[in-house]
């Protein structure tokens, strides 16, 4: 049986990759992909925890929820990106800095 630490390592690596993508990418789609990676890392965590905790499968339940929510979030995010593109003719998030203080 694979120990929990391995799962956590994999998930941490995945999270860090996602985080790196979110911080560094110049493309909103790629940032979205980074976010998906981070979400999946956390799902992996939850699934791994639920494997070592078999009382009432809470981890799996949360994983399913998060998947659904992530799907919905991606849909919304894509729409936002499309609207953003319509407004500034670019999907580089650095281009749209109207909130700058």
């Amino acid at each position: 049986m694979i120990p929990l630490q391995h799962f956590l390592f994999i998930s941490a690596i995945l999270f860090c990759l996602g985080l790196f993508a979110v911080i560094t990418r110049k493309n909103a789609i790629q940032i979205l992909m980074g976010i998906e990676l981070m979400i999946n890392a956390s799902i992996l965590n939850l699934v791994a925890f639920s494997r070592f905790d078999k009382v009432d499968n809470t981890g799996q339940m949360f994983a399913l929820f998060i998947i659904v929510l992530a799907a919905a979030a991606v849909a919304v995010a894509l729409v936002i990106i499309m609207n953003l593109y319509k407004r500034v003719k670019s999907i580089d998030p650095n281009q749209s800095d109207t909130l700058r203080g």
């Binding site: 985080l19 979110v22 911080i23 560094t24 940032i31 998030p93 650095n94 749209s96 800095d97 109207t98 909130l99 700058r100 203080g101």
Partner: peptide
Amino acid sequence: RGMQSGKLQHYFIWML
């Protein structure tokens, strides 16, 4: 004010 760069990723770093 320097934090409010208007750049999404900066906000993200700050949050982090």
